[in-house]
Write a protein that binds this DNA or RNA. Structure first.
Lengths: 337, 337
DNA sequence: AGAATGAGTGAAAACGCTTTCACTATGTTC
DNA sequence: GAACATAGTGAAAGCGTTTTCACTCATTCT
């Protein structure tokens, strides 16, 4: 525990508490030799500033929070893990808010955080716009893999559009022409981007967009199953399916196996995310890989800049992280007309 | 944000800050009418105490932390979620520490938490004894699904021993006599309990324990695969397998399917945990179900009692939560001698 | 009746830090 | 050489609570 106080350090060094405080917060205001002496003493006695006193005095917020809508989803679990480590390295407490896709819970978490003068909040995809906007009024915010009104918020996203293009382009190269798409709720901007990428790439290759080949899921495993069932009711089955995330892709895969449909023999399948956990499955999924570490590092860096830096109100940062194609065993040359 | 201060409330109510503070912390010390008036005013102006001032003044720690060794494991993710909500309901910040099974990281997290005067720490299974003991010296600790030296720490565990007995008893009822067991590292006490339950139940039924039927895994999916491979090298295959957790059981299941071995036709399989997430798989696993909610609620309750209650140093609490058998599709009547 | 008890309250001193202000040496500028 | 910056430092006043201590009335006990 923080045994020593700033006063004791001051006494030992024959200086004043004010100066000691300065070497902590504005080192350049203290002359070199004195600064070194104070630093050394702190080191020796193992001085730790009392965070409560410091916050009370400076009236600034403390700590970060991370909102995710489903911690059981490995994509978010990885984000939680990564941000958790980044925060710890900087000595910043991180509160995880798992909203379970429930606006009521979002509100409770947010109220509670604002009461406690949180320093900043990082929001993941799937959190309602209302909650984010309310947070923005009172604290620093960064969005990770989530898009809100242009230019208003700092956000870090994968290049969802380009990623989707890569996926469809790849299937096109494999001679697929009837490509199904499994999307998500319209409110998820990042997933809508993938849809745009899908549609544009088709059209760029001279294939008109066919709404019958678009199935809206909810990004969960089960909707993958539903999607495949739907596609099989079509007079002409798609020869390939692009799923907006891995979980649904695995729904497709599982259902296909259960029905004796061969992947990629009968249908090719490509996912989005490339979650390492899914190596559990006996079949390695081909997918567009998101660089989760880069996503988190950028979001965290921007947050730190906001917390430390001058509160200049310029245009908000916007970082786009590239994706890459990770080939697995679920895509093959098209075998049907 | 906490706009009003205790002084302003006092002024409005024509009383002193001391009295206002008392209605917050020791309401019984304030006479009824005055107390009501103060409460009403707080309500009206939306008073929120400043947590920093409060902690600074009372010199007590703040917030809780939860250590888990792998947040990608759904069993722990569920614990994180549940404890997260319990904490939020009580208005207590919760820091998640995902140690990734790495003692170095445990140490960093702990140092950091102690520096920041954490109020209490809840440890999950898989955290090293050294870390826990160090924490116990400086802050309140509760163990969840983790056993340490008898009587020293408060702990909440599933009835691992009884659960294992249930599993083996069930297989025995189905006429299985050659039952394999997939265990975990010896250092995981909860898993060792399952082993004890396995062995004792066999012997109670007149079946001598056969070390060849015991395989030590690491609780990960991959070791399930390894376990099955090992069992198949035996001159006589087991007719049933009891896995100390679901993940390894799914390893077995996946490998069995890949090899064309029928479950439960050729081999029956029972797991431990019963994680809902695994409903993903097309086959519903038979498993011993742990009551995660009860585990978390008890652990949290004990922690709250420690934080609020008198610091009496009696024997530590020890809560054991019962398990139940959840039948799926992976166990059947024994078909081989 | 006088003393002793106890409930209810307020004044004031912490808690450990930040920050403003004033002050003293040093340069720097015409 | 007077007027003025500028760097470096300390004194002291907060920040919003909690907590100790002392005080005032009632009430109860001899």
């Amino acid at each position: 525990m923080g045994r020593y106080t700033i006063n004791e350090i001051a006494e030992i060094c024959h200086t004043s508490p004010a100066t000691v405080s300065r070497v902590l917060n504005n080192p350049h205001l203290v002359a070199e030799p004195l600064r070194k002496r104070i630093r050394k003493t702190m080191e020796e006695v193992g001085y730790r500033p009392n965070p409560f006193a410091s916050r009370l005095s400076s009236r600034s917020g403390w700590g970060l929070a991370l909102f995710v809508f489903d911690i059981l989803n490995p994509f978010f679990a990885l984000i939680v893990r990564k941000i958790g480590h980044l925060a710890m390295e900087q000595g910043i407490p991180l509160t995880i808010c798992d909203t379970e896709n429930n606006e009521e819970k979002e509100k409770m978490f947010l109220d509670y955080l604002l009461d406690n003068q949180i320093g900043g909040i990082i929001f993941g995809e799937g959190i309602s716009a209302g909650t984010i906007e309310r947070a923005m009024d009172s604290t620093e915010t960064v969005l990770i893999d989530r898009h809100l009104k242009e230019g208003l918020v700092s956000e870090v996203t994968s290049d969802n559009y380009r990623g989707a293009c890569q996926a469809v382009e790849y299937l096109y190269q494999l001679s697929h022409r009837r490509i199904g798409f499994i999307g998500g709720p319209e409110s998820w901007a990042s997933v809508e981007e993938r849809f745009r990428g899908y549609r544009d790439t088709l059209e760029r290759n001279g294939i008109p967009y066919n709404p019958a080949l678009m199935f809206r899921g909810d990004l969960r495993f089960e909707s993958g199953i539903g999607a495949l069932e739907y596609f099989l009711t079509l007079p002409e089955w798609p020869t390939a399916i692009f799923s907006a995330n891995d979980q649904m892709a695995f729904g497709v895969l599982t259902k296909a196996k259960a029905m004796g449909i061969d992947v990629p023999g009968d249908i090719s399948l490509i996912g989005f995310d490339d979650i390492p956990l899914y190596s559990l499955y006996s079949t390695r999924l081909t997918a567009i890989q998101q660089d989760i570490d880069a996503l988190c590092e950028n979001a965290f860096r921007i947050m730190m800049e906001k917390l430390n830096g001058t509160p200049e109100e310029g245009p908000k940062d916007r970082v786009v992280v590239p994706t890459r194609l990770k080939t697995g065993e679920t895509c093959g040359k098209c075998s049907r007309p």
